[in-house]
């Protein structure tokens, strides 16, 4: 019997497959399609203290093996998440969820997390210091070790739940940022957010996306994500949630061998809404082929 269980800071998940923030809303759309309780858990839509509409359209561009988005953290704001989304989610999802939180100042991160801290449905916080699509915020915190540490400390001070910091790959040295977060008390690291990219419309001779640049995701970025998970796993002692271009059970196993304790699946949900249940169903068979009896045993298994 293949053992798919993994654990994040004491929270045991039935399997390591987690739909990534921004590709799964607050679960509702997918709960119409399948029983989302088959998931390890999921990371809900990046939520900020106040409601945000996000960027003007077009927000989406395509690229070989991936896509670029500049949604800009559209979300209903933390109060509506607490009063509407979480109660609605409780009806169809009986596991704890990952709360993905964004912000524009250290205080804003702390205030949003403080508001969410009392929610029993939340298993851990995933602090997004890495959204490439909002000006003067978010990614700024993830590109500077001191700022990332300041956000981590401020959030840790207001919550009793584990705090994972979600890092941007758009930096020269991801290891120094990961270490700064660990030193500031982070319980885990989540990576990678999207790579900054753009496309140009040849007929209009203008950027496809109204915000000019956006976050590049999809299967094309898997090698970059793997490399960074590998580097961060070597540098920190806290658990790593790996993500970036994962779309199959084999990708999940590769990510875990690189050092991920759990694995998020992002853009694959957008092109195949059943991507995650398919991966979960596929895992035992692929584990069998590879002689893996317990996923827990292979975390970081490719390191010497």
């Amino acid at each position: 019997m293949a053992d798919l269980k993994v654990s994040l800071s004491g929270w045991e998940l039935d399997n390591p497959v987690i739909p990534a923030s921004g590709t799964f809303g607050y679960g509702r759309e997918f709960a119409e399609l399948y029983d989302i309780n088959v998931l390890g858990t999921f990371s809900f839509k990046g939520t900020t203290l106040n409601a945000r509409f996000g960027n003007p359209t077009p927000r989406i561009a395509e690229t070989p093996g991936g896509m670029i988005n500049a949604v800009g953290m559209q979300n209903p704001g933390v109060d509506k998440v607490v009063t509407e989304e979480l109660p609605r989610l409780a009806r169809c999802f009986h596991k704890k969820v990952i709360a993905n939180v964004g912000g524009f100042s250290v205080q804003e991160y702390a205030d949003a997390c403080a508001r969410l801290n009392g929610q029993e449905q939340i298993g851990l916080f995933e602090i997004n210091v890495s959204c490439p699509n909002v000006h003067d915020g978010c990614m700024t915190f993830g590109t500077d070790p001191f700022a990332a540490a300041a956000v981590t400390k401020a959030v840790k001070a207001v919550t009793s739940k584990p705090v994972y910091v979600k890092l941007t790959p758009n930096v020269t040295d991801i290891v120094s940022i990961a270490r700064a977060c660990e030193d500031a008390g982070a319980d885990g690291i989540s990576l990678i957010n999207t790579l900054l990219g753009m496309r140009i419309d040849l007929r209009r001779r203008k950027p496809v996306i109204s915000n000019v640049m956006g976050g590049f995701s999809g299967s094309a970025i898997l090698p970059v994500a793997l490399r960074m998970v590998w580097q961060v796993y070597e540098a920190v002692k806290i658990p790593v949630i790996g993500m970036g271009g994962v779309s199959s059970a084999r990708d999940v196993i590769e990510m875990m061998l690189a050092g991920a304790t759990a694995v998020e699946v992002g853009s694959a949900n957008l092109t195949d809404p059943w991507a995650c249940p398919k991966i979960i169903a596929e895992l035992p068979q692929v584990m069998g082929q590879l002689g893996i009896s317990s996923l827990r045993d292979i975390i970081g298994g490719a390191h010497a």
Partner: peptide, 27 residues
Amino acid sequence: EERMGCGFGACMGCSIMTKGGARRVCK
């Protein structure tokens, strides 16, 4: 019409602002 990502309401790629707030063109 808007440029879409997923087409079923998950990615917020095609949102427009309406008098009733943000709405997804696809969903």
